[in-house]
């Protein structure tokens, strides 16, 4: 859907999308990194299950909601991607029960 302009330079950041390794450019937001990765959609809606992708990129539409490091419904367009970050696409409503038990297991 999007491609990176050539010769931008800058540092590369390694992160994962649904467990698969991906790279971004330091300074990318999570949403920009997802667009650059060629990913079609970042979530399905809790109402009808329809797929959605980043829309406004400025924090107003809440379409780019993804799970970041185990926390659901984060606004991908406002959060800079970081080394080692685990980004997951979401299916429907946020699964807080499993988020919470995963957090408990990790602690």
């Amino acid at each position: 859907m999007f491609r990176r302009l050539p010769d931008l330079g800058g540092e590369t950041v390694n992160f994962t999308i649904d467990g698969r390794p991906a790279t971004a450019r330091l300074g990318d937001t999570v949403a920009a990194a997802l667009l650059a990765s060629g990913m079609e959609s970042c979530r399905t809606t809790p109402v009808s299950g329809a797929p959605r992708a980043p829309y406004c990129m400025m924090g107003v539409c809440f379409e780019c909601l993804v799970t970041i490091n185990g926390i659901g419904n984060r606004q991908g367009c406002l959060i800079p991607v970081a080394e080692g970050m685990a980004v997951e696409t979401q299916k429907g409503a946020r699964a807080i029960a499993s988020e919470y038990s995963a957090k408990g297991d990790a602690a």
Binding site: F2, R25, T29
Partner: peptide
């Protein structure tokens, strides 16, 4: 997916060179 605001695409360009 694939439909965005033009402003959104502009932000992707400005911030990430996309």
């Amino acid at each position: 997916p694939g439909v965005m605001t033009a402003g959104g695409a502009q932000i992707a360009l400005k911030t990430s060179g996309l």
